[in-house]
Write a protein that binds this DNA or RNA. Structure first.
Lengths: 358, 358
DNA sequence: TTGTAGGCGTTATCAT
DNA sequence: ATGATAACGCCTACAA
């Protein structure tokens, strides 16, 4: 009688071999179909395997092939639609090549990321795709290279690390978005990001730890300066980590002596909280305040008003990252894979003229 | 010299043992800290391990412990915010217990699901969480039980399968939503779901292959009947698989001789496409048509108009599923874990009175 | 074409 | 407390 917890021993090649009346090696060859096996034996072995409901133990297989047919993915927040979509791109691509995906969520926490890399390396994944939480703490990423396994960076590049990164070329679109705001007459333009920095303020040579945010800011600042406007430190805000922080920051922005007339939200999570704060305060977009969001999702066209956004080809970023990784795994060149994808400004109705001050 | 692809041999217990001047067995004991080891030896071994930057090979470890500290998760669509959030719940819970997660996406395709189960079992995951694409094809799920590894069903139950399922008790809320519509005077109420069925129509004893959809429908139908209204087959539509199909179905609904005055969307993906179709046709919610969506997300309060929804505790569903699985893995009871979580109707502004026909 | 034997890196069981 | 030595389940020379 089989007890519920009893995980009865799975059947092995040895079992199949015995039943087929051949040696372990022959059975293994027939099953893995490599080497040379006579047709009659092959059939006999396969029939035996069928009968016994044989399934290979991939762990054992991995142990001496050295490859696990598994790639590890480390992202900051799978709940964020951005990474959800990228994950889908990675997952689809990996599956098509016979690879599986282990996903680890770091909550954008560096220590968690360090542990995640360690665990995945210990589990002997064949390669890693990482959206690094910080470009300052990268020893653990170096470790990946040392281990001889390929690493592809997702959405963020890390200077000083010899790893391919697949990113969205977002600075130009950030400029475009800012220009659209400037064209509408805005000069007090705010930017709100979740990124944690030393302080929450902005200084000119602030070093940001996430390149995709750096790029957004670079695009914004360059557009500003090209019109002779110096970025104002009090309008560039970081640390919008959760709903509470984001609402607080938005509140502070609105209560400034010279408040912004337009806000750029660094991602959709932040956008939602900023918009809710505005609504709760009875402020209307774009009448009282103009608004632009980075990232586009289906719902962005259905809000009141439809949102002007910077759309990113996120799914494709995932596909490209996985493709490059798989190519490296196969020892193939990957120079032809586009690793820098274009973003586009999508004009909808959340940008309007500067309101006349009361 | 080390070639780029050269994956240099990782250091093993044997290496550590040699350097510490002890036997393999002793080194293993010191590292895994089990058995008895003298303090001096332990220190020596640990120092050696440190020096050599030793990392255990989890594959080898899994091979003779029989446990991989990994659980497999199979869902229909990770890109859907619903599963994204559930995944986050699972992932957080698993990580806290020292488990990792392998994720496989099936695109709600049964064959893919069958393959996924096979692969995960072959990879020797310790347990499985599955949102089964169909309650009709379940032999592969039976296999999981046969393998002795625990299985927890996510969001959907499968009659005839002895597996715990964690679900949202959605029928009551579906009734509430329908009642709200009825109270507003609607009698022609449509329901649009992505579920693939034999035909796309509805008949009274239609067997649906996803329990969470069955439950939605049951709630709707019972509310209807309690007011003496028979569900109308032409208003209950399935097969809204992608944007195109959903738009087509919505169009057909609107062109009915006696079109619906209210629509219930089975999930947020469908809701978005239905709403876009309405907007493209110049129809306004709730003036021309009332609307209710299953699932609540932050953006649902910011659309025009804010959407009346059935909110589900999705993150908690994920947490509960993982908790139950982990308990079973630990041989602990799990009767105290709530496996049936309540949904709630959230009234916003997408339900209005029946428009007067032109 | 087939079989024998050894190795992959652990854990686990024996002695000592 | 420590050390041989055998599993775990598979692949892979090498030999027959």
């Amino acid at each position: 009688m089989v007890e519920p917890g009893d995980r009865q021993r799975a059947t092995t090649v040895a079992d199949v071999a015995r039943r087929a009346g051949v040696s372990k090696a022959t059975a293994a060859r027939a099953l893995g179909d490599y080497g040379a096996v006579s047709d009659s034996v092959r059939e006999r072995v396969q029939a035996a395997a069928e009968d016994l409901d044989y399934r290979p133990n991939e762990l054992a297989r991995s142990m001496n092939t050295g490859r696990s047919k598994t790639i590890g993915v480390i992202v900051g927040d799978i709940e964020n639609g951005y990474f959800g979509l990228a994950m889908r791109g990675i997952s689809d691509t990996a599956k098509a090549a016979g690879y599986d995906v282990i996903l680890i969520n770091t909550s954008e926490n560096v220590q968690t990321e360090i542990d995640a890399v360690r665990v995945l390396l210990d589990k002997r994944v064949d390669g890693l795709i990482v959206a690094p939480a910080s470009s300052f703490h990268i020893e653990h990423l170096r470790r990946v290279d040392d281990s001889g396994r390929p690493l592809v960076l997702l959405d963020r590049r890390v200077p000083g690390l010899e790893a391919v990164s697949v990113e969205v070329d977002i600075a130009p679109s950030a400029s475009d978005a800012t220009a659209a705001l400037l064209d509408a007459g805005h000069t007090r333009i705010a930017f709100v990001s979740a990124l944690q920095t030393e302080g929450e303020g902005y200084s000119d040579r602030l070093q940001l730890r996430v390149s995709s945010v750096t790029d957004r800011l670079a695009g914004i600042v360059s557009a500003l300066r090209s019109r002779g406007i110096e970025p104002s430190a009090d309008l560039i805000r970081f640390g919008a980590l959760g709903p509470e922080r984001t609402r607080a920051i938005t509140g502070e922005l609105l209560e400034l002596e010279d408040p912004p007339t337009a806000i750029l939200a660094s991602d959709s999570l932040i956008a939602l909280d900023v918009l809710r704060t505005l609504r709760d305060r009875g402020l209307r977009v774009p009448d009282d305040l103009s608004f632009v969001m980075f990232d586009d999702f289906d719902w962005a066209a259905l809000t009141d008003p439809p949102l002007t956004v910077v759309a990113q080809p996120i799914y494709d970023v995932g596909v490209a990252a996985a493709t490059i990784l798989l190519r490296r795994l196969a020892g193939l060149p990957h120079d032809d894979v586009r690793a820098r994808l274009p973003a586009t400004l999508v004009l909808r109705d959340s940008v309007g003229p500067v309101p006349v001050r009361a």
